[in-house]
């Protein structure tokens, strides 16, 4: 029972909720990328790899130019480039999108350590100076509110960015012509094509956007939280983002709710020193939850109709 009393005690602290929101934002960016990509009809299980590449290049660029903006830009470009490989292979060459996604993840794991060894030897990359890291931003006045101020308004800038991206994604996807077109391409590309929509352009755009967002999340992880790069540091977060996307039934808001749940789990895990349960068993919960959701509500959570199917003009 001590487990539950520990949890209850933790819930009363703003730090737990602060950490939950931070981890949720970290997962939210790639999850939104996944939503955008899959809504356009391209299956994307490569957020893990794109995030890892972003994390590496954020640190590498930051150490080289000592400028956090350029570092974030570098991370986004790196993520976008990885995504464009996925896009070319699965849209232009109509390859199996899951094979391509697996390949991206393997490629990212390999190339980051390859470059790490090449440019930094077998030693560590080194620490990014906190003056060049992504800063926290205490919102004036709002940050002073007891409890809630700590939770919502004393966060890393990237948390605010993630929330803005969430709102933008939701609005663009469901309230604009572009969003309607994107969704139609993911549901019925033949019909969209007939209506004069360029299926390929939208799909390329969507996949590359998912890479930009995953790269951004990678930068958040490496120069916002850890301030260094460690091989394989994303540690499955891209896959949890994938789970969040499915959990949230391919909607931005749903994905956000899922990342909040997973972020809460991560925050509890981080506070494990004050919990009397194996942290390893606790770490299973996001994955088990996803399995349960898939098993229980799968009929109500189906992917876009043309998700994973390469578009061949003229073929039905």
């Amino acid at each position: 029972m001590s487990f539950f009393s520990d949890i209850l005690r933790l819930i009363g602290t703003p730090d737990l909720w602060h950490a939950s929101l931070q981890y949720a934002a970290l997962l939210l960016l790639p999850a939104l990328g996944g939503v955008i990509s899959e809504r356009s009809g391209v299956v994307n299980i490569a957020m893990e790899g794109m995030m890892l590449t972003g994390a590496f290049f954020a640190v590498a660029v930051d150490l080289a130019v000592h400028n956090v903006f350029i570092a974030v830009l570098g991370a986004m470009i790196a993520g976008g480039l990885m995504a464009s490989i996925h896009a070319v292979v699965s849209i232009r060459y109509r390859a199996d999108q899951i094979v391509s996604g697996v390949a991206i993840n393997i490629f990212a794991a390999g190339i980051t350590v390859f470059l790490l060894n090449r440019f930094y030897g077998l030693a560590d990359v080194g620490q990014v100076a906190s003056s060049n890291a992504l800063p926290n931003w205490n919102v004036p006045l709002l940050g002073q509110i007891p409890f809630l101020g700590r939770v919502f308004f004393q966060q890393n800038v990237m948390v605010y960015v993630a929330i803005i991206v969430l709102v933008l994604t939701q609005v663009v996807l469901f309230r604009t012509r572009l969003g309607l077109r994107l969704r139609s391409v993911g549901e019925h590309p033949q019909a969209a094509d007939t209506a004069g929509i360029n299926v390929y352009v939208l799909r390329y755009g969507a996949v590359i956007t998912s890479g930009l967002l995953s790269g951004l999340a990678g930068a958040f992880l490496s120069i916002g939280i850890a301030n260094t790069f460690v091989p394989g540091m994303t540690d499955g977060r891209g896959y949890i983002a994938l789970a969040a996307m499915i959990f949230g039934k391919w909607t931005p808001i749903g994905a956000f709710i899922a990342t909040l749940i997973f972020g809460f789990g991560q925050a509890i895990y981080d506070a494990n020193s004050s919990i009397h349960i194996s942290p390893y068993l606790l770490s299973m919960t996001p994955y088990l939850l996803t399995l349960v959701v898939l098993a229980a509500v799968v009929r109500r959570s189906s992917p876009p109709a043309a998700d994973g199917i390469p578009y061949v003009p003229g073929a039905e």
């Binding site: 490989i85 292979v89 060459y93 109509r94 390859a95 199996d96 094979v99 391509s100 697996v102 390949a103 991206i104 393997i106 490629f107 794991a109 390999g110 190339i111 350590v113 390859f114």
Partner: peptide, 13 residues
């Protein structure tokens, strides 16, 4: 791993 990924890309595409 890079080679392995390249082989995968190549065989898939």
């Amino acid at each position: 791993y890079v080679l392995q990924a390249l082989i995968l890309f190549s065989i898939a595409a």
